[in-house]
């Protein structure tokens, strides 16, 4: 029974739409996080003095601290963005898809 349902879903163009859309979104976010994080790791390894500079003359906040704090907040906002989109738009598409499959499977 399940297998029949899966067959219907797979052949539904909405499935392809859901999968491509979500994959593109998830991988984009993943690459932003990986790119920023490993970029930062390379800065630490090769340009440590840059990270130790203050953000402006006389400030105690260094570029490194500011950039890291930004990443802590930004990465978390990205997870919030993903959850919002996946729990809303993508889950609606999924529910739609399952409804279609039930109908066809009757």
């Amino acid at each position: 029974m399940s297998s029949g349902m899966y067959e219907h879903m797979r052949n539904n163009p909405k499935f392809v739409k859901l999968v491509t859309k979500r994959a593109r979104f998830a991988w984009t976010l993943a690459f932003i996080v990986l790119g920023m994080f490993y970029g930062f790791v390379l800065l630490v390894a090769f340009k440590p003095t840059l990270l130790g500079r203050p953000i402006y003359q006389g400030s105690m906040v260094t570029i490194g601290v500011a950039f890291e704090l930004f990443m802590f907040i930004f990465f978390w906002l990205l997870t919030a963005l993903y959850v919002r989109k996946a729990n809303g738009e993508f889950d609606e598409l999924t529910a739609d898809l399952i409804k279609d499959a039930w109908k066809e499977n009757k």
Binding site: W27, L29, G64, W76
Partner: peptide, 19 residues
């Protein structure tokens, strides 16, 4: 500051696990 760098490394895996 090194300690702070380290914490980011511990944190950065979570968004990836989610995505």
């Amino acid at each position: 500051y090194d300690g702070y760098i380290y914490m980011l490394a511990f944190f950065a895996g979570w968004p990836i696990i989610l995505f």
